[in-house]
Nucleic acid binder design. Structure first.
Length: 550
RNA sequence: GGCGACGUAGCUCAGUAGGUAAGAGCGCUCGACUCAUAAUCGAGAGGUCGACAGUUCAAGUCUGUCCGUCGCUACCA
């Protein structure tokens, strides 16, 4: 992060999960969890964090799903929004606000942005012909039209692409087009739509992107490639009845703002909603209008152009709002070589995972595999391995190890640190350096590395114990044994700080000894305090007992 | 087809502006220890850095071609 003001406000903007179905581990590892780790760290580092997101509730897939289930879009959205909220609660994702794009506030903010861009001439009206399904009474997105591919004669080619020969298509090219919704033959019909003049921003965006420092290579390359190909103006309205209304009259009935235009506005509308809830209407400006504020967007790589091109274009056009400071988009978590996809049954959904893994264990295993630089292959076996061989063996066991010795040979009393020797102080100094380094890594959104750094602290403490053997000292020199154990405990307190953004539940179990984690620094435990008989922080998982299909 | 990326130890991944004889974790082998969730600690084995050609005093790191994998292709968001 290129900002020397460490206490600057930080907007943690997180991809809006699409409420058309369950989200899977790829989404969790790609966006929500990294954002949470980052936000938790920034709060401990003393920054004013505003972490927002919400369910994206509009768009054709939701209406189609509702139709096919014989229910309403509201019902679909409600179902998955509730599931997401349940997921977040079980995972302790620390939103300052998790809302949805279905609020009045969001519609108002969207209208404001639309109108300003319209008045400035960045939005204009054009007409085109699109396929219309008379039976269903709606215009059809390309992918909902099926027909025979003009190239390979595959009979189930979609209007946007033929899955057989891979060619990109225009729906008009299809032979014998059929509506996937009603099965009837669609007809071309004239319709008017508003377009965002992305081409207006070609130069400004190019300059802006060229000046970005410290961004991930794949994010920058992909974005620049998009711009070099030339930015095309995009329709931002759709012939739908499910969505945010168009604030300008005169383009006919049944038009709504297209989801990709309004969903990204959610970052701003959520900040405003948060401010309203707080009772200070303009509190959102601290993150959006303050030049010292950072805004970091956590998304998957499939969302890159929306966050590095389209949304910045809208912000430039609107004016006086902060552009993204960084967009550390993650690559994909893959299962058996392919992109995770709940709808195709590849990989576990978040809900399924939470039925078989403890939240912190799952958080650990995913964080250790965040696809920060390249796609990362993940299996259930790998998740179990991470939990058992790393989290439990190195860290969970260490805590249990030290607390058990204190409980058994120090009369369950936290020893004082008064008699520490040089080697004791050396351990603590090593831990303090680890805390410092892990903090820098998290600030740079190198979350995987920072986790490993934190875990190396646990290994240091284990090595310290092995070399000083307090279990022997307790028989020959109880006073020295107590000092060693007290030192190890203090060091554990330091490692716990490093791990707290990743493991909020289990690190909280140590509050009784150390008090809450409220600063990115090691704090001494409370000398002389009695401790309870220790219980392991985590359970090992037995993969054979997991009830999994794949 | 076009675009982007990836292919580094058995597995999952790092390798910053090309330069000390290629790294981490896990697994494996050997050893130490036995306080701890049979956990811990130390040592070691293991790689012609996808293939080929080129630029350079010097390439995992740059260029080209090829092979393989993945994603995107703007009306899924």
């Amino acid at each position: 992060m290129n900002n020397n003001d460490e206490s600057a406000p930080v907007l943690v903007a997180v991809a809006w999960p699409y409420a058309s179905g369950s989200r899977h581990l790829g989404h969790l590892a790609g966006a929500y969890l990294p954002a949470d780790v980052f936000a938790r760290f920034q709060r401990l580092a003393g920054c004013d964090v505003l972490m927002v997101s919400g369910s994206d509730v509009h768009g054709t897939p939701i209406t189609v799903r509702a139709d096919s289930e014989g229910t309403t879009p509201d019902e679909i959205v409600d179902r998955y929004h509730k599931e997401f909220l349940d997921n977040w609660q079980k995972l302790a994702i620390s939103w300052d606000l998790y809302t949805s794009t279905g609020t009045n506030n969001h519609a108002e903010v969207t209208h404001d942005i639309f109108m300003k861009l319209y008045e400035k001439g960045h939005i204009d009206k054009r007409s085109s012909e699109q396929f219309f399904d008379a039976e269903a009474g709606r215009f059809l997105p390309d992918r909902y039209i099926e027909g025979v591919c003009p190239h390979c004669e595959y009979s189930e080619a979609r209007g946007d692409q033929c899955e057989n020969c891979g060619r990109t298509l225009d729906p008009e090219e299809l032979i014998k087009p059929i509506s996937k919704i009603s099965g009837s033959e669609p007809t071309l019909k004239e319709t008017e739509h508003f377009y965002l003049r992305l081409s207006d921003f070609q130069v400004a965006l190019s300059d802006w992107l060229s000046s970005r420092k410290g961004w991930r290579n794949h994010v920058l390359n992909f974005s620049k490639g998009w711009i070099e190909e030339g930015l095309h103006d995009r329709a931002i309205t759709r012939d739908l009845d499910w969505g945010v209304s168009v604030p300008v009259a005169g383009i006919g009935e049944g038009k709504k703002i297209y989801v990709w235009f309004e969903a990204v506005i959610g970052y701003l509308s959520a900040a405003k909603e948060w401010a309203k809830n707080k009772g200070v209407e303009d509190a959102w400006e601290k993150w959006w209008c303050n030049p010292n504020s950072r805004s970091v967007y956590f998304i998957g790589k499939d969302n890159i152009p929306f966050h590095t091109i389209i949304w910045p274009a809208m912000l430039i056009g609107y004016g006086d709002l902060n552009l993204p400071t960084d967009v550390p988009a993650n690559q994909y978590v893959t299962f058996k070589g392919g992109k995770a996809s709940a709808s195709r049954g590849i990989g576990l959904t978040i809900s399924e995972s939470l039925e078989v893994f403890e939240a912190d264990s799952l958080r650990y295993a995913l964080a250790a595999s965040f696809p920060e630089q390249s796609d990362t292959e993940l299996t259930v076996e790998e998740i179990c391995r991470r939990i058992n061989e790393e989290l439990v063996a190195t860290w969970g066991n260490l805590v249990n190890r030290v607390l058990s010795m204190i409980y058994n040979s120090c009369e369950a009393t936290i020893p004082s640190g008064e008699l520490r020797t040089e080697e004791d102080l050396k351990l603590l100094s090593t831990i303090d350096q680890i805390i410092e380094r892990a903090g820098q890594e998290i600030d740079n959104v190198e979350l995987r590395s920072a986790l490993q750094t934190g875990m190396s602290g646990a290994a240091e403490i284990n090595a310290y114990l092995n070399s000083l053997e307090p279990w022997k000292l307790s028989k020959t020199d109880p006073e020295r044994a107590a000092t060693v154990l007290g030192t190890a405990l203090s060091a554990i307190g330091g490692v716990r700080v490093c791990l707290s953004p990743y493991l909020p539940f289990s690190t909280q179990l140590l509050d009784e000894i150390f008090g809450p984690v409220d600063i990115w620094q090691r704090k001494e435990p409370q000398t002389g305090k009695k401790i309870e008989k220790p219980k392991p922080l985590f359970k090992k998982v037995d993969i054979d007992l997991l009830d999994l299909d794949d």
